[in-house]
Write a protein that binds this DNA or RNA. Structure first.
Lengths: 266, 266
DNA sequence: GCTCATCTGCGTAAGACATACACGGAGTAT
DNA sequence: ATACTCCGTGTATGTCTTACGCAGATGAGC
């Protein structure tokens, strides 16, 4: 699957690290990996990942589609390069002394990166990703943040995994909610849901929804219906408030609490 | 984007909940949403998500490609239905009394579901997903697990998000590693990496790698080279052992520790 | 029972896309 | 010079989703 060079490294890795030997004989090159990736990133930022087609990238550079294949062996390879390009960490990070604050900062950096390039979430992170320069740099910064934390290597790597996963997941959630307009449940829709989310099959969820969480039910539970929150023109119930931010912090703090507890037991 | 019915719910939601009114007048239907989704799931299980094309699904059912569109308005809708179909929770779950054990069980269920249908990880979970029957059922079970936990609704939902995210992420990682054979870094590749992962730019990572973690460096750090672990025929360094399982448990326990701490402070 | 609007499954075809392949010419090494 | 290498391009193929229209099946209402 992953094209590999004769060095045994995936080609995308070699390219990203600048290990790719450049040909000597032929005409001089009109393009470069950097320009191609930059063009692709620009398109993705503007119109989303589906808009990144080989033709679109080539056209934005003023070249033909096929010319890209002189630099990139497949679209997949281009996507990997884009992913690494998206997940940068500022060159100089001033990390807090306190490991807890530092990890908070670090998680924020990852979160910001994903927010700046949401499409990066749609590119699967496989084993190749961990060898890419920006991933490695990011890991290094995380390790710096945990310098004074009494954990062994494996635990630190585990922590990095879990926190970055969390940050990515929360951004994904946040975006799918912001996407909204897409989905504002109408009063009728809410009522229909209220009928199928039965109390026998979903006792706890049902109760929680009646309390106004998860998805606001307008229906059969006739208590909060004559609502003051019905601001929409056609009775559309607005999506739950911007509490994704809270969930992000909540989850992160949960993890850090756990870390603190674990580190203390040493 | 999400096709919505006249009820204001995304059509996939209506279908999954069986809210879709069936036409009366015409000829009887030869297919059903269930059969189509089941066929698609089977193909995905066998050959991966890319193998799920409308043509493949139709052929496996003995129908023409276009006939599917009488039941499903787009491939995207089919994917959403597949996702929900993949993430089932056993009808009767016997949860442990202890919330901690119960959450462990619950996380295991999610993990198992993803493991059984890895392709489900590739289908983006958007706002529609939370309205699907199996998602709601899963959430309900999680809430049951946390019945005795002193957290408010928002915190519980946050916990559910974080844990399921974690489980999904770990399965994704696990699979990308198992995929291997794809990527076994050769000694030469490791050496090349060793040259670019410099100590100035990656002081902590570098040290950690020298200790044999993350990615085994065979190169310039001439200490662990004459290796007893060089079992591969052509000097391929095997990928790091199956410690994904440990990372999963580690992260989960971290979260549960955090929860315990939070609940105690009430 | 007749009639007609409705619905079924199908065939065709259009429009994106990734990408294999070969060619003419540019540029370098000998 | 000459031969070799490599560039950018044009053409072409195969795969995929999906719009559109058709002939026949089926039930509703008279």
């Amino acid at each position: 699957m992953a094209e590999s060079t004769e060095t045994g490294l995936p080609r995308a890795v070699a390219i990203a690290w600048g290990m790719q030997e450049v040909p000597q004989r032929g005409p001089s090159r009109g393009l470069s990996h950097e320009r191609i990736v930059a063009a692709a990133v620009e398109i993705a930022d503007a119109d989303g990942l589906p808009a990144v087609t080989m033709q679109a990238v080539a056209k934005s550079l003023g070249f033909t589609t096929m010319s890209l294949y002189r630099y990139v062996s497949s679209k997949d390879e281009l996507l990997r390069l884009m992913q690494d390009a998206a997940l940068t960490v500022p060159e100089t990070v001033r990390l807090d002394e306190d490991w807890r604050a530092a990890l908070h900062q670090w998680a924020g950096l990852i979160r910001d990166a994903y927010r700046a390039h949401p499409w990066a979430l749609s590119i699967p992170r496989d084993q190749t990703s961990v060898l890419m320069p920006n991933t490695m740099r990011t890991v290094d910064v995380a390790l710096a943040a945990m310098r004074d934390l009494a954990l062994d290597d494996a635990e630190k790597l585990g922590t990095i995994m879990v926190i970055s996963q969390h940050a990515a997941g929360m951004v994904e959630l946040e975006l799918s909610l912001n996407d909204a307009g897409t989905l504002a449940i109408t009063a009728e829709g809410a009522e229909m849901l209220g009928e199928v989310v039965t109390a026998e099959r979903h006792p706890h969820l049902r109760a929680l929804m009646a309390r106004g969480h998860y998805v606001p039910l307008g229906g059969p539970s006739r208590d909060a219906d004559g609502g003051a929150d019905d601001a929409g023109a056609d009775g559309a119930v607005p999506p739950p408030a911007e509490d994704v931010d809270e969930e992000y912090t909540f989850g992160l703090d949960l993890l850090l609490d756990g870390l603190a507890a674990r580190a203390e037991n040493r």
